[in-house]
């Protein structure tokens, strides 16, 4: 991989669900190393469907490439280590009895030795500011704490790109603020789907607007947010 290979390349991706509904109608996205990109659009635009393609949960084949590697069946184990996918509901992401086990799950299934797994768990929890929580029981945490731990569960895999689906949904103002600060500090390539336009303006220099399974705009956040006609025609509001 050389310097110009994009971290994420999606090329004319199409997908219909088994019930025949066409959720993606030819999506193109290129994200380069170090970029932090927001993915916005109304409910049903296809954001979550796109995200499920990024590590092969839905099969994108050659149409999706991570750091130059197509998401074919053979590559999936490596792809999954490169793409840190955090789902919307942290209760789905945290499926182990304790926080430690959840954060250790990724590295352990990547086949890393136990010492390295332990080291990564400690590091990932420290990164999200939850260093003291390793021994805690997942179901006793607050929703804000669960979100941070959910992010730690993929940071421990040391991913090339962090992909979050609606991370600030359902958070109270303080938990939301903590999350924004955390995302701001993480030195990682990011693609974040969200309805939180204030967060978009604050955190993401670049934004992609999706509607009806297509990318309808892709550019500088500062510019796109001034285009009220564009925003309104896709059910969005200027913050």
């Amino acid at each position: 991989m050389n310097e110009t290979t994009p971290t994420l390349l999606v090329n004319d991706l199409r997908f219909s669900y088994p019930d025949g509904h066409q959720a993606l109608n030819g999506v193109d996205v290129v994200i380069r190393r170090g970029e932090k990109v927001a993915l916005v659009g109304p409910n049903g635009a296809g954001k979550s469907t796109l995200i499920l393609h990024l590590n092969g949960i839905l099969n994108g084949g050659e149409q999706v490439q991570i750091a130059g590697m197509p998401t074919t069946r053979k590559n999936l184990p490596q792809i999954r280590a490169k793409v840190g996918l955090v789902f919307q509901n942290p209760d789905d992401q945290l499926f182990s009895p304790t926080v430690f086990e959840d954060v250790a799950f990724g590295p352990l299934h990547m086949g890393l030795p136990e010492d390295e797994v332990r080291r990564r768990v400690g590091y990932a929890l420290a990164q999200v500011g939850m260093g003291d929580f390793a021994g805690r029981l997942s179901h006793h945490l607050s929703i804000g704490q669960k979100k941070r731990i959910a992010i730690a569960t993929v940071l421990s895999m040391d991913p090339e790109i962090l992909v979050l689906d609606e991370p600030s949904a359902g958070l109270d103002p303080r938990a939301r603020r903590a999350l924004i600060n955390l995302l701001d500090e993480l030195p990682l390539t990011m693609l974040v789907s969200t309805h939180d336009m204030l967060m978009v303006r604050e955190l993401f220099p670049r934004m992609i607007i999706m509607d009806e399974g297509r990318v309808v705009a892709d550019g500088k956040t500062a510019v796109l947010l001034e285009d009220t006609t564009l925003l309104e025609s896709h059910g969005l509001e200027k913050p």
């Binding site: 499920l52 184990p77 793409v83 509901n89 799950f105």
Partner: peptide
Amino acid sequence: ERSDRVYNAMVARGYNGRLLTMNP
């Protein structure tokens, strides 16, 4: 439906049918 989402979350972190745990 939840079991489906949980399974996705497991697969996304490298689960391939063999559950591994560490012995603390």
